[in-house]
Design a binder for these strands. Structure first.
Lengths: 223, 223
DNA sequence: TTGATTCATTGATAAAAATCAATATATTTG
DNA sequence: CAAATATATTGATTTTTATCAATGAATCAA
């Protein structure tokens, strides 16, 4: 039941019981194993995913088999995408990084609720625009920073947002790190090593630790 | 009067006469000379601009005095930005490229209309998401293409969208072209010269002409 | 467990792009 | 009009980043 869900979107509190029940009637739960694809870029957007367990990477499949990871999602987050309300296609691929459980809510039903509840619609718009602001920041990060700045950004993203700690075991591969920062895997590894040699971080396999947050933050800012 | 405006947003046709009149009561027209700033990044988002004459560049002010032009707007277009419904700040700067006339609609009034008219809200959401899809494409263009691919993109953007002809006089400077493609002015100029020498385009000062659309398109695609 | 496959790391080299510097060409302003 | 200012262009050089190649480590399936 959506209404009792521990990982319910705060957004859904805006809905009245009827509306929430409508969503509840038009959803189903799915479990994915690590590495499976939930949404595939180019395919029809028929559902919206709400994560109740696990993590996934959202990435754009670009040119020459290169990907750009735009976000890592985890429990409690909702994934629709810009295909919602427009062409109803997925404009990114979502692949799990761990075993994952999601609720898939029917997109049409979801849109009906948006249509019927102005407050909800406004909250959705706010959510979309907040993502838009983040995308602007990402544009600057990716186009105006050199590799060390971009890797530093990614480390803080993992630390602040994904793992919420300054020491953590990453769920992403080195290739993923490269796909987050728009560089090659080799370059990403080299920068990690530079940071390690400079005593800014400690890296042991998948275990990361931020040692000198100040300097790392400075690298972020100056690019 | 908004209702008789030649450059009325198609979006505004969704509004009923009362709602449109409300907007009409809360707008005013402003003329800008070339090079003036309509919205400044970081300042309060108090109005939405509807262009009735002229052109402007929308750019993010990034690091080390570098800008990233994300869009060129012209007559008939509306500019709000992701600050709408969120923090009500501007997240980009809008500067005119020619003498320009805009209608500035009060943002609060605009939001009230969004709140009161679900169809309008949904249409706005569609518009925002359409922009989101374009931003995804821009991410790939800027991060996965080399300079020739990015310049080719920009030329098609100017040709297809801004000037709607394959020979045109650009309203942007070489620096602006560089700011659209995330490279230095010198690099942008060099690529233009390469294209010229290869017979793909003709450039004479500000007059551009696409000569070999096929090859140019190929450069776009392969990056 | 072991071969196979994927993932991670390192070094050498090449390619791409920025920087610096100089000059040319417009454009504006007193 | 002419000096001053901004914009555009070109070449030489350096920096940044990707590519290529080889090897090591980890993970997986039979």
């Amino acid at each position: 039941m959506c209404k009792d869900c521990l990982f319910k979107q705060p957004l859904f509190n805006i809905l009245n019981p009827n509306e929430l029940e409508t969503l509840n009637q038009n959803r189903y739960e799915v479990r994915y194993k690590k590495g499976e694809t939930i949404f595939k870029q180019g395919s029809a957007l028929t559902h919206i995913a709400c994560f109740t367990h696990g993590m996934a990477k959202i990435y754009i499949e670009g040119l020459n088999n290169r990907n750009l990871i735009i976000k890592i999602v985890k429990r409690g987050e909702m994934v629709g995408g810009p295909g919602m309300h427009t062409d109803f296609k997925h404009h990114f691929t979502v692949t799990t990084l761990t075993d994952t459980q999601v609720c898939l809510i029917d997109a049409e039903t979801f849109q009906d609720v948006v249509k019927s509840n102005n407050k909800f619609a406004l909250a959705m718009m706010k959510k979309i625009n907040t993502q838009g602001i983040k995308n602007f920041e990402k544009f600057i990060n990716l186009t105006q920073k050199q590799m060390p700045g971009r890797i530093a950004d990614a480390i803080f993203y993992l630390s602040d947002f994904v793992h919420e700690s300054d020491h953590f075991d990453v769920v992403i591969s080195r290739q993923d790190l490269a796909d987050m920062t728009a560089m090659t895997k080799e370059s990403a590894i080299r920068i990690l090593k530079e940071f390690k040699d400079a005593g800014l971080i400690s890296v042991e396999g998948n275990h990361f630790e931020i040692l000198d947050k100040e300097t790392l933050r400075k690298i972020c800012r100056t690019g």
